[in-house]
């Protein structure tokens, strides 16, 4: 059985009288250990699909099974707990909490878990180590470069040991060189921890680093790359 199974996902947005069809029926399976890119022109529905998979938005139609669980049937609190347990997010704009240090940002999702302070700190150090930022824990986000911030964000996504990390255009705000470094870190984590990565991108060089490439257009999947 696949880790994630999405069946005939549709998402409509109502803007006044006009209705935007962001997803027009998407079937998708994600397997354990995948490293997958979503590619497609602007407006093709990449972000929408990631949001639905990440359980931070509700499909208009369709079902998502995560490890056999229908996440559409969860209450808001159950969804939150589900995300804390299973999903990590990386955003195009990093979305670090500006008043917290890098260390505290990474620690923040762990506040939800029943961990002692020492356990938490150990995990944070591990995660920062994994993204190569062990030295910069005391810095505030505004004291870090874009690439460093995104690495902090990856550490934050990683620290809860989720099974899937969803990254919406993680490299779009970075120069190419830094973007490729970020991708390398993601690849490394994927291999080390078998964390599933699904990320969207416009950049052909970035998408070519994926093991599986999914093309989207007008709210549909148009081609699937090789299964891992």
């Amino acid at each position: 059985m696949s880790l994630i199974q999405a069946q005939s996902l549709k998402k409509l947005y109502r803007l006044g009288k006009t209705v935007v069809e962001a997803l027009r029926g998407v079937d998708l399976s994600i397997e354990e250990g995948e490293f997958t890119a979503l590619a497609g022109p602007s407006g093709s529905g990449k972000t929408t699909l990631l949001n639905l998979l990440g359980c931070i938005e509700v499909p208009t139609e369709g079902v998502i099974l995560f490890d056999g669980i229908d996440i559409g049937r969860l209450t808001a609190s159950q969804k939150a707990d589900f995300r804390a347990e299973n999903i990590g997010f990386v955003f195009q704009t990093f979305n670090l909490i500006p008043v917290l240090t890098a260390f505290e940002n990474v620690e923040f999702p762990l506040l939800k878990k029943n961990l002692s302070r020492t356990q938490r700190h150990k995990r944070v150090e591990e995660a920062l180590e994994a993204v190569g930022l062990a030295q910069l824990g005391r810095h505030r986000p505004d004291e870090l470069s874009g690439g460093q911030r995104q690495r902090v964000a990856i550490a934050r996504a990683l620290v809860g040991r989720p099974r899937v990390i969803l990254a919406d255009e993680p490299t779009a705000n970075l120069d190419r060189q830094t973007g490729l470094q970020i991708l390398e870190i993601m690849q490394d984590l994927n291999q080390r921890y078998r964390t599933v990565f699904v990320f969207s991108t416009h950049d052909t060089m970035v998408m070519n680093l994926a093991r599986r490439l999914i093309h989207m257009r007008d709210g549909r999947l148009i081609a699937k790359g090789p299964q891992p």
Partner: peptide
Amino acid sequence: REIGTIMALGFRPSE
């Protein structure tokens, strides 16, 4: 957006 991020990280609305 920050609040959205905190919720995406898995914090409940009540939290």
